[in-house]
């Protein structure tokens, strides 16, 4: 919580602040919740000034309510659906991945999580004509593979454009990741880099690699960091109509890792796995959580040199 300090608002001079402090009012919350009449008597500051200070601080530190009829119009204007390369999967997701949402794909090792992300990058660039930021936290990003998918789908003439539209950021721990997200936010606010004007998809592959090391033990710090990170991702998604895709692992028998607190974070959760009785490049996708669709739907995809596609 912010401390009451000089120059927060014009009425708060050094003198006023020190008087308030001697009356036990140290933070903004202290000032807002205190009975002003009593405070005026105790500090011999004019009641009128205190009321003005309180009102200014309230305005400065609170969030302004948004009227939903305006909010609806801006949402309609800014939201879009990012189709995946697989038609059946799009049907399952009611069109694809939605902006302003955090979508999670979870699966075991070599279940095709990164392939899904890379494939989606190419389709965002070519079909939606938007840019992608790919945050690589475990060294799993492969530019060669991205180029292979791009070239086999769209040919050599589009290769350069596709590769230019995907920006890769490496962040190997949670602090670097948070810094990276903050940088993206700053760039989107400042609007100096044209790349970020058409940014639509943010991939974090994988979220587990950065969160897991800080969890566990008796310390609660890890949970705090995890929630901070999840809020940052959700704010980015909501404030800039981004589509955020995070990759998670599964532990043991199909249980998604990172526990109960994280499980509330994604809007949509897809589980990817390799059905034992199928060929080696076939994967099954199950929608196990969604805030707008019935869950439990399944579809099969195949992983080829063209990335992911429907499997029939």
């Amino acid at each position: 919580m912010s401390a009451v300090r000089p120059n927060l608002c014009p009425q708060l001079s050094e003198d006023v602040v020190s008087k308030l402090r001697s009356a036990g009012v140290k933070t903004v919350v202290d000032l807002i919740k205190t009975d002003l009449e009593g405070l005026a008597l105790e500090t011999s500051l004019p009641y009128k000034d205190l009321v003005i200070i309180r009102r200014l601080l309230l305005a400065q530190f609170s969030t302004f309510p948004v009227n939903c009829s305006d909010f609806y119009l801006t949402t309609i204007a800014s939201s879009s659906i990012i189709p995946t390369p697989a038609e059946k999967l799009n049907e399952l997701l009611d069109g694809g991945l939605y902006t302003s949402e955090v979508t999670e794909i979870a699966g075991e090792i070599s279940s095709g999580k990164t392939q899904f992300c890379l494939s989606l990058c190419v389709s965002v660039v070519m079909k939606a004509r938007q840019n992608v930021v790919f945050i690589d936290t475990c060294g799993g990003f492969s530019a060669d593979r991205l180029a292979e998918i791009a070239e086999s789908l769209y040919g050599e003439e589009h290769l350069e454009h596709i590769l230019q539209s995907v920006k890769v950021i490496e962040a190997f721990d949670i602090f670097h990741l948070m810094t990276a997200l903050q940088t993206i936010k700053d760039k989107m606010v400042k609007k100096v880099d044209p790349f970020y004007d058409t940014l639509k998809l943010l991939v974090v592959d994988s979220i587990t690699a950065v969160i897991y090391p800080s969890l566990g033990g008796q310390q609660m710090d890890g949970h705090g960091l995890m929630v901070q990170l999840s809020l940052k991702l959700r704010h980015l998604a909501a404030d800039f109509s981004l589509c955020v895709l995070v990759v998670n692992n599964v532990i043991g028998d199909g249980k998604v890792s990172l526990g109960k607190t994280w499980s509330h974070v994604p809007h949509c959760r897809l589980l990817i796995s390799h059905p034992k009785d199928q060929e080696s490049n076939v994967r099954e996708l199950v929608l196990i959580k969604s805030s707008r669709l019935a869950t439990g739907g399944k579809t099969k995809i195949g992983i080829t040199e063209k990335g992911i596609e429907d499997w029939t």
Binding site: I32, L58, F61, V66, N67, C68, A238
Partner: peptide, 23 residues
């Protein structure tokens, strides 16, 4: 018309929520 009867507030931390409630 109905949506105009709904106000949405998004808070980013608990002290912001507190101050917002006061306001």
């Amino acid at each position: 018309k109905c949506l105009s009867k709904l106000s949405l507030i998004r808070c980013t931390n608990s002290s912001e929520l507190l101050v917002t409630l006061y306001s």
